[in-house]
Design a protein around this nucleic acid. Sequence first.
DNA 1: GCTCTTCGTGTGACCGGTCAAGCAGATGCG
DNA 2: CGCATCTGCTTGACCGGTCACACGAAGAGC
Lengths: 333, 333
Amino acid sequence: MPHVANIRDVAREAGVSYQTVSRVLNGHPNIRAETRQRVLDAVARLDFRPNRAARMLATSRSHTIGVLAAINGSYYGPTSSIAAIEDAAREAGYSTMLANPRVVDASSLREAVRHLIDEGVEGIAVLAPQTRTAQVLADLGAPIPIVTMQTELRDADAGLSVDNELGAAIAAQHLLSLGHRRIALVAGPDDWSEALARTRGFEGALRDAGLEPAAVAAGDWTAESGYLAFQQLRGHGFTAVFCANDQMALGLMHAAVERGLRVPEQLSVIGFDDVPESAHYLPPLTTIRQDFDELGRRAVATLLARVEGSPLEFPTALPPRLTVRASTMGAPV
Amino acid sequence: MPHVANIRDVAREAGVSYQTVSRVLNGHPNIRAETRQRVLDAVARLDFRPNRAARMLATSRSHTIGVLAAINGSYYGPTSSIAAIEDAAREAGYSTMLANPRVVDASSLREAVRHLIDEGVEGIAVLAPQTRTAQVLADLGAPIPIVTMQTELRDADAGLSVDNELGAAIAAQHLLSLGHRRIALVAGPDDWSEALARTRGFEGALRDAGLEPAAVAAGDWTAESGYLAFQQLRGHGFTAVFCANDQMALGLMHAAVERGLRVPEQLSVIGFDDVPESAHYLPPLTTIRQDFDELGRRAVATLLARVEGSPLEFPTALPPRLTVRASTMGAPV
DNA sequence: GCTCTTCGTGTGACCGGTCAAGCAGATGCG
DNA sequence: CGCATCTGCTTGACCGGTCACACGAAGAGC
């Protein structure tokens, strides 16, 4: 086992005390330039890397954040956000620790948070947008900041979601502007905040036009559930359908085509998320784009501001953007 | 700031010395049952949680593994594996630290590995299946075990991939058995091990049948690149095409349909991965299934065995499995 | 010239665990 | 009965950093 240098080795090598080395490493003032250089040279010669455990023990700061992500059903969004979080965190000198509860219930969430806290993380970003999540986390009374992404709460974390309600309203308005009047909804699971917000936005926009959904089915975000949803919906005589995410839209189009319906000529379909593949679905999917990367970056910025006690906050949710492709067209007459 | 209990508080509460508490926590023998119980009661009363930094400093063991994942292009596979890794690690009492180089070049890889080592991880699982990865990692001479997943090397980590060569051969044989003789290939990027292995397997199977690929194009795993690949390939008169992943197959089908070709009647398409959506592509995609979860579990098992010096090894790559759906049929005459 | 501040550096204690050695009391063995 | 061994527990040192404080030297103010 090769001996790895510690701070006292460096001090000896540089001919100063270990405290001086510590000062140099932490950028304290009041070090003579020549002394600093001697220390830095010694650090380089010995390839000294400060021991994080020792530093953490002494300062009780870990420079680590936790990511609590429950990934199931859809992959693209959470994965993009996680990658962005890790990137932003490292940029700011923080490391990232992962916790993946396999199911999202109160006790798994609690256990995951506790695990991360035991690891010494200074803050946690949560990607588990079930409705109950926010409440469970609040009840925990955790001693560190926790930001919840993609929540529907109009609270301090508002800036950490896309405005799902607005996005769904835009989708509905797009269909309305094409002349559709009988529009169905494939909602997400009703224990997900985003699903509820999208349903609300969609129904609100319809109501503003004096309409109601022609029919409603709920899926679980998977393509398979979109496929099954179509079977529930058929017979309700709609000319367009809003699916709460792209995968369900894909499954629904599959079922529709199988029944001999032509998309978009006989049925317009619009999704949500704009996953990279949706541009190549058949037909290419009209959908609502979310900026998952920006979401991740904002989560880290918010978290670190809270960790360090500064007041940064993102007051408004990110604007979603309509991407029109070939799966929507004017209503058949 | 509420005082959190340390081991000496527990000792005082239980009326024993701190060393006895440490013994109990670490399951040492030679503790009287009644003493152990008194300690455990005190632990529970004070909600004592051992400080990981202190333990790490004293033992120089972190009980943490690192995951170095370069996620770009495809999401489903790596994300599934990461989730499985985190799960298996936690099961074994290990935590998971993340590092996501945004590009995969030698210096980013080195930096990411170094970052993880500085964090004190005891081993690293690498999901960055570019060909050069393995060599760069080997050259690093890292003082901790590193396992590389999805590498093409037939070395100690062989069990940490699906047998890509076999999978591609199975795909080719499926097309051959349907009577296709003019078969094109959309390969993955040629700096990815998996891409090379799939190309090898595909071309090998064709050669065994006395054939050569009708045409070859390379993509970058994205649907978009599959779409573009078709434009390169057309005019080469093929009746079937093997795409090195599902997304590229999706893009290719999109381009084919746009040119008026019917899949599978005029063109059979087969993919690789079996992402959840591929069952609902239009037409549903015939593809080769990989077990990403098992890959993640094996990576952790291998890593921990190596960390602990036990001899566990998975001698053989995971078998891929053909999933026949609607995108392939007998060759047109 | 003497004290007062500022600058640059060193000393000791401490963070919260673990490990090695030590030390009573009980038990085994001749 | 004397000695060695085992059992159960305690004490002291240590892991590798940081923090609070002390201290000598140089420059400022009177």
